[in-house]
């Protein structure tokens, strides 16, 4: 099961569990704000080797209908994917 962002974020104490034991995969915040530059995949040069997906510390790169995509909600913009790509299909763009 992939942890996912919950629709409703707990706001009151009553909504939080009594103990520190909690449900797996419970996300309440994104990591997008950490990024100063974002990786962009050029689909025409991408060969779908998935090396970027393998080496991503966040696991935000995935395959969707034969195309390789990035979950920008959780990408921190480290740039490992750009360096690992043998085909130069990933470029970093400044975040504005």
């Amino acid at each position: 099961m992939k942890p996912y962002l919950r629709d409703r974020i707990p706001e009151t104490l009553a909504e939080l569990p009594d103990a520190t034991a909690y449900e797996a995969g419970y996300l309440v915040t994104k990591n997008a704000g950490w990024r100063s530059s974002r990786p962009v995949i050029h689909q025409e040069t991408c060969r779908g080797c998935l090396k970027c997906y393998l080496y991503c510390p966040e696991g935000v790169i995935f395959q969707d209908g034969g195309k390789v995509k990035i979950d920008y909600d959780f990408c921190k913009g480290c740039g490992i994917c750009r360096k690992i790509c043998r085909f130069g299909a990933i470029e970093m763009e400044e975040e504005k």
């Binding site: 099961m1 992939k2 942890p3 962002l5 995969g25 996300l27 915040t29 994104k30 990591n31 950490w34 990024r35 080496y55 991503c56 510390p57 966040e58 696991g59 995935f62 395959q63 959780f74 921190k76 913009g77 480290c78 740039g79 490992i80």
Partner: peptide
């Protein structure tokens, strides 16, 4: 294909989180 370590707060480019993932 599933991810079991996702949305964590490790520094960008963290090697440890890659190993755990």
């Amino acid at each position: 294909k599933d991810e079991f370590f996702y949305g964590h707060k490790a520094c960008a480019g963290c090697g440890g989180s890659l190993a755990v993932r």
